[in-house]
Computed example of a mutant assay.
Amino acid sequence: MTKGKLHDGARPTMADIARELGVAKITVSRALSSHSTVKESTRALIRETAERMGYRLNISARNLRQQRTRTIAVVIEMAPSHDRLMSEPYPLSLLGGIMQELTAAGQNMVLTTIDLFAEHPPSADGVILLGQGVHDDAAAAIEATGLPYVVWGAAHGPPEQIVVGSDNRAGGALAAEYLLGRGRKKLLFLGETQHGEVEDRLSGFEAGLDGGDAAVLDKIACAFTVAAGRDAVTRLFDRGKAFDGIFAASDAIAMGAIEAVAARGLAIPGDVSIVGFDDSPGASIFSPKLTSVRQDWAVGGELLAQKVLELVAGDPVESRVMAVELVVRES
């Protein structure tokens, strides 16, 4: 295959354009959606190359909107792994709410992942994206299609982006209030703040501690898994770090932290208090039962479906921030 040419009959993809120019696929995606993070000169070069290679995704998307498919694509940003399964409460609880609302509206749903969507976008009238990705990369890939879309996450993208999500800052503040109320002063935060939701949880947590004598001693980036939480806390113990409170960005991380603390013979919550985020079904049956910030995924799914259908219909739509609450248990 010569440079700039594809095999006969092959349809060019973003990956083909990226290889042609020696840039990342996400740069191509952002350039084709006129994302402000890509220089204008780079955008122009990518658009010219896409046209020369016969790339026609935006045209296809426009045609699909003119001839309705009565189908909504639900795109999951997370990559499934042995530690983080698609069968876990996230994303299943969100999917349940989405399916219920779409079915009631007589709409079909096609489920895919962000990588598959970027390469082979399905025929759909609109898109629901579950998870923005690091630095909003996943949302940029969806935007490149030209289809109306709604995101589950935090409002960190362009102001016109429609987002449904929980009040993550308020959730962080609730965690701070709880740990302060238990007299905890040496605190840890566990979570990857390159995700907008987690960044907001930490921001709210630190704001909730402001003015008091408690402090965040360490902020550990880790994936949304039990193993990641366990490993992060184990490493801190190995370094001789002393702490008496943990706020974890997800219940899975918090459960891993509990396992690591218990393995050192410390009592929970006697020696260390731990707060998670999500109030997933496992929080109430874990030992000890996990104190967690609750977000209502089922209602969130319904809202996502309602808003994407309103966008498809051309109606005015606004983002929605959902209230959270602290569910106090044993940890």
Rank of each mutant, 00 (worst) to 15 (best):
G172C: 04
V308L: 10
N58Y: 01
R30F: 05
V28Q: 05
K307N: 13
G22V: 05
H120D: 11
G171N: 12
A124N: 04
P12F: 09
S87N: 14
V308M: 09
L92I: 11
A176K: 09
G181N: 03
S93E: 09
A298K: 13
L311W: 11
K307E: 05
T13N: 06
A227Y: 12
V308F: 08
M109N: 13
Q67P: 06
G133C: 03
I59L: 08
F243C: 01
S250I: 03
A24Y: 08
K25S: 09
G265Y: 05
L209R: 01
A242W: 14
Y178C: 04
D278F: 03
I246S: 00
E199W: 15
G301R: 02
L290G: 02
V164T: 15
E197W: 04
D231R: 03
D244I: 12
I72C: 06
A144L: 00
G97T: 02
L116E: 15
L94F: 10
A104F: 00
S36H: 15
A267F: 10
G240H: 05
E325Y: 04
K25L: 09
M255Y: 05
Q161N: 07
A305S: 11
S273L: 03
V127A: 09
L304T: 11
R62C: 11
D296K: 14
Y55L: 04
F247H: 02
H7T: 11
V293M: 12
L32M: 03
T69L: 02
R52F: 07
T112Y: 06
S123I: 14
A144P: 00
I274N: 00
A139I: 06
A141V: 07
N63V: 07
T69S: 08
L92A: 11
T2P: 07
R320G: 11
R52K: 13
D271E: 10
K289Y: 14
V233S: 00
A139H: 06
H35P: 10
R11W: 13
D271Y: 02
G229S: 03
V272P: 00
A221S: 14
R30W: 02
E199S: 15
G126T: 06
G256Y: 07
I59A: 08
E160K: 15
A283Q: 08
A305W: 00
T37D: 10
I59H: 08
R182P: 08
G256A: 13
G4Y: 14
T69E: 02
A242Q: 15
D115M: 09
R11A: 14
P89W: 01
